[in-house]
């Protein structure tokens, strides 16, 4: 019984949001505002049960670990941002957050997203085995396999050249940047294709709920 009530509530709210496709209307606005309120409360409750209580309240007040007064005080200082006159006090905890995050990001991005990516690109330009396979068995697939590594190396280098704006894009440098744009366009096209796929999947999920869970027609 309770499940059926829940399903009907879910279906009603789903249709309220979908009604926006016709035009903006009070049902949509009602659902939109309800969503914001419920989401905000969801976050607040989870922050309390999963973070504040086990990581602050329990150690500080339950176990007497008084060092936790420092993050408590810094946290309360953060809240002063709501008050215009003493809002500057929130800079201290904000500085701590920003500094910690910047410190992590500096090394992590450099290691994983720069150095490691360059390392992975430094592979033999001519893959002898792949070309031998192609000449032994010429075909579209064996050809694509043979040129895969050169495509990657050329694509990465020219793509990075394109992003270098400190030098004018003329001559050989400009032509390389142009090739870089082509690779970026292929990447953006692939991203667009996947984005379309993602959005359609989300719609399939909702329609499946309406047809299967609510109307029981599939």
């Amino acid at each position: 019984m309770i499940e059926t009530v829940g399903t009907w509530i879910a279906a009603f709210l789903t249709l309220c949001i979908l009604s926006f496709l016709y035009k903006d209307n009070p049902f949509y606005k009602f659902a939109e505002h309800l969503f914001v309120g419920i989401s905000a409360a969801y976050w607040a409750v989870y922050e309390y049960f999963n973070v504040l209580r086990p990581n602050l309240i329990q150690p500080l007040f339950g176990e007497g670990q008084f060092l936790f007064i420092i993050p408590l005080v810094l946290g309360i200082m953060m809240l002063t941002r709501l008050l215009a006159r003493v809002g500057w006090v929130s800079r201290w905890p904000l500085a701590f957050i920003v500094g910690t995050y910047a410190g992590y990001n500096l090394i992590a991005y450099l290691q994983s997203n720069a150095v490691e990516q360059v390392r992975a690109t430094l592979v033999p330009f001519i893959q002898v085995e792949s070309w031998q396979t192609f000449f032994g068995n010429p075909g579209a697939i064996t050809f694509l396999t043979a040129i895969a590594v050169p495509v990657v190396v050329v694509g990465v280098i020219t793509g990075i050249i394109y992003f270098f704006f400190s030098k004018e894009h003329t001559g050989i440098f400009g032509r390389s940047a142009r090739i870089g744009i082509w690779f970026l366009m292929i990447a953006f096209g692939a991203s667009f294709g996947y984005t379309v796929m993602a959005r359609i999947s989300l719609l399939i999920g909702r329609v499946y709920f309406l047809l299967h869970d609510w109307l029981h027609v599939i």
Partner: peptide, 15 residues
């Protein structure tokens, strides 16, 4: 391959 190359160039630039 080509998508990965473009994405890698973007990734290095962002990094």
């Amino acid at each position: 391959y080509p998508n990965m190359a473009g994405q890698r160039a973007i990734m290095i630039g962002i990094a």
